[in-house]
Computed example of a mutant assay.
Amino acid sequence: MNRLPALIVKVERSESLCFLELDASGIALSMLLFDLKPEFSEGSRVQVLFKETEVVLAKQLSGEISFSNRFQAIVTKISKGIILADISLSCPAGEFSCIVTLKAVNRLALEPGDEVTVMVKASQLSLEAGHDA
C-alpha cells in the first residue's frame, strides 16, 4: 500500500458524501469519502493511501482527462517479472510504487529517470489519520 503525507485543505459535503481536497507537498489531490470521521477535518494532517495496482502511468500526456489526481513523478527503478513490473517512483510528496504489465512497460519504453504522469481515481484513495505530513 502506498502512503503519501498530506494536509486536508477543503471539505465539501452533500449528505453523507464528502469531497476532500488535499495538499501532498504541493501536489493537489482530491478524493471521495462517505460518512467523514471527525479526525478528517480541514487542517488535519493525514496519510493518503492507495494500492500499487490503482496507479495509471502515462508518458507525454497532454489534454484534459477525467482523473482529478494527476501529477508528475520520476521513475527510479523498474523490477521486471515475467508478466508484471514493479515501478518505483519519486515525487515531491515522497516515494511510492505501482504495478503494471510488462507489456505496458515495453509499450511506454519506460526507463529509470523518465518523467511520467501519475493518475489515481479520486474513489481509489483512502485516508489514515494521526500522522505528521
Rank of each mutant, 00 (worst) to 15 (best):
E54H: 11
A73N: 09
I99V: 13
S79W: 06
S44D: 01
S79L: 15
A58R: 03
V56R: 02
Q47A: 14
F96R: 05
S62T: 12
L57F: 05
R107G: 02
I83H: 12
E54D: 14
A58H: 00
L61K: 10
K51R: 13
I74Q: 14
E52W: 02
G63K: 11
V48W: 01
K80D: 12
K80Y: 09
L89G: 01
F50H: 01
G43T: 06
V105N: 02
L84G: 02
I65V: 15
K77A: 15
Q47S: 08
K77P: 03
K51D: 09
P92Y: 10
K77S: 12
S66T: 14
S44Y: 01
S97A: 13
Q72N: 10
L61C: 05
V55R: 00
Q47F: 06
G94H: 09
D86I: 08
I74D: 12
I82A: 04
V105A: 05
A93C: 00
K103A: 12
I78W: 09
L61D: 07
L108A: 04
A58C: 02
I99H: 03
V56I: 10
K51N: 11
L89P: 07
K103S: 14
A58F: 00
T101D: 09
K103G: 04
G63Y: 08
E64H: 03
A104T: 12
C98A: 09
I78D: 08
E95D: 15
L102K: 08
F50N: 05
N106Q: 15
K59L: 02
G43S: 00
S97M: 13
V100K: 10
V56Y: 00
A85R: 11
T101Y: 10
T53R: 12
Q60G: 03
D86L: 14
L57C: 07
E52C: 03
A58V: 00
I65Q: 05
V105K: 03
R70W: 06
I83M: 14
K77E: 15
R107S: 07
S79K: 13
S79F: 11
S44H: 03
C91F: 00
K103D: 15
S90P: 04
C91E: 07
S97H: 13
A93Y: 02
L108T: 08
L84A: 09
L49V: 06
N69G: 10
I74C: 09
Q47N: 11
K103R: 15
I87T: 09
I82C: 03
N106D: 15
D86K: 14
K103I: 05
T53S: 15
V56F: 00
C98Y: 01
L108E: 04
E95W: 05
I78T: 08
V48T: 01
I82K: 15
K51M: 07
S62D: 06
S68W: 03
T76R: 13
E54C: 02
C98M: 02
S90T: 04
V75W: 11
I82V: 13
G63T: 11
F71M: 06
E52Y: 01
I82F: 14
S68D: 07
I83K: 14
Q72Y: 03
S62H: 07
